[in-house]
Amino acid sequence: MKNNTLFRRLLIGATWAWMALLALVPYLMLVGASFFERGTDTLVRPGLTLSNYLHLLSPTVFTMAADSVALAAVAALLCLLVGYPFAAILAHAPARIQPLLLLLVMIPFWTNSLIRTYALVMLLKADGVVNSLLLHAGLIAEPLRLMYTPVAVFIGLVYTLLPFMILPLYAALKTVDPQLLEAGRDLGAGRVRNFLHITVPLTMPGIIAGTMLVFLPALGMFYIADILGGARTMLVGNYIRDQFLVFRDIPTGSAASVTMTVAMGLLLVLHHLARRRSGKEMLP
């Protein structure tokens, strides 16, 4: 018993230490850097300033942010539309094969997403697998232009982020008591109205969680837009990456990064508040 608690403490302590050292400390450095000035010889020069944040208040940055939000929102919506039926099939599959299907959803995680994105190029390019198949099948006369289009970017985002939508939806669907659906049918609701009046409201936490889990990473996934969409669309993620790696403007990149994190944090807080309210809104 004593060993057990020691083991637990070690395990939890190691996790905390890991998070503190590799996530919290670097992030605090980033927050610090966002208030520093850009150096000529060194990367940053100490000296408190808000100018990095003021840089962000430009029309270019606003347009870019709006584009990013729109792109992430569409990606989240596509994931929801594809993921919901997928999760429903998963949740209603025979209990024996559910673990196998879940494994199939998760296997892609075992490969780095950057590598998977390059693999998508092989599929989507003019002489890639998709076009070859369609040409051979006689469905198209000349190769479709897929690469470097918004379509390719959405394919990449949906492909990469779909598991984050499926898993919370699956968990939410599993908690819906099948007897509630029987009760709905008993009271005269067909399958469609049962779905709209019972399943959707009861899985709303999963829908919101999945949407957040797709929407927030989609805002920052610069490499997918880079590789599949070309450099024509500038997104928040690309912008931050460019500040660090191209322009070597660490303070501005830090400020953009911190601003984005704060925005995401606000979204999460709003989500939390909305959930707390929705639990009570019907009370007298």
Partner: peptide
């Protein structure tokens, strides 16, 4: 189907 029966449970 249950939704079209004059029976409730």
């Amino acid at each position: 189907p249950p939704e079209r029966r004059a029976v409730n449970t």
